[in-house]
Each structure stands twice: as C-alpha cells, then as structure tokens.
C-alpha cells in the first residue's frame, strides 16, 4: 500500500515554510483539532490592495496537519482575499496527494479552516460562513 507520507509531506513537516509570527497582522485565527490535539494559528498581513502581503503559521501536531498548514501559506501568499476565500478542500488535498481517512481529513483541513475563519471574521461575514467552516 502506498503511503500518504511522501517525501514532500515529510520535507514540509521537518522544514516548515512560513512558520512564525507577524507583528502587523490584520488577520489572526487559531483552532485545535480536539481529537488529535493538533493546534494551528495563522496570521496574515495585508497590503494596500487587500492582498496577502505576508502569512505565517504556528502550531504543533501531526505531519499531515503541519505540512498542510505550510503548503497553505505558500498557496495564500500574494493572493487577494477573494482568491484566498475560494481555496477549496480539494485544492489542499491535491497538494497533499493520496487518500486520507475521515479522521485524518480533519488534520489536513485544520489550517484551511483556521485561515478561512480569520478571513471571514476580518470581512465581517463569519456568521454566514458557519456552514462552510463546519464542513471542513
């Protein structure tokens, strides 16, 4: 059986990209996966055109949750908020590659959920996004 744990996933786990904190972030959000104990915090700094000038994540947990958070930050950087909002579950899964069980899917999508929570909170539509966020 082929493993989800590709060289790429392990490289992102051991050498995380965009890990740390931002001093001037307008968007901040944090969440945990209570089942696994994964923790992800995401901070985003916007430029004058409301594009993501910089993004950092912080957290701890399994390789899937940490690698996917790292990959997400690369994907989001430079995008407009509208583009970032449209990033889907499928986009993340194709970056990770391979099949995940329902339980591990939560690990893979935690960072996307956190990023979107922060984003929707910033644009003031967190209430309307509850359904989308709970599907992640």
């Amino acid at each position: 059986m082929s493993s989800i744990y590709s060289e790429i996933i392990l490289d992102y786990y051991r050498n995380p990209r965009n890990k740390g904190k931002l001093d001037r972030a307008q968007i901040r959000a944090k969440d945990t996966n209570p089942l696994c104990g994964d923790v992800i915090e995401i901070q985003m700094e916007l430029d004058g055109d409301s594009k993501v000038k910089d993004i950092r994540f912080n957290g701890m947990g399994c390789a899937i949750s940490q690698a996917s958070a790292s990959m997400l930050t690369e994907l989001v950087k430079g995008k407009s908020l509208d583009e970032a909002r449209k990033i889907s579950k499928e986009d993340i899964l194709s970056l990770i590659g391979g099949q995940l069980s329902a339980v591990r899917l939560k690990c893979a999508l935690l960072s996307l959920k956190v990023m979107k929570t922060g984003l929707y909170n910033y644009i003031g539509s967190l209430e309307n996004a509850k359904e989308e966020l709970s599907s992640l």
């Binding site: 493993s3 399994c62 390789a63 899937i64 069980s101 591990r104």
Partner: peptide, 9 residues
C-alpha cells in the same frame, strides 16, 4: 513521529 501519523502508518 506524531502518534497519529504512527497510527495511520
């Protein structure tokens, strides 16, 4: 190796 990764493997 995080225990959840261990359990999956």
């Amino acid at each position: 190796v995080h225990p959840h990764d261990m359990a999956t493997l």
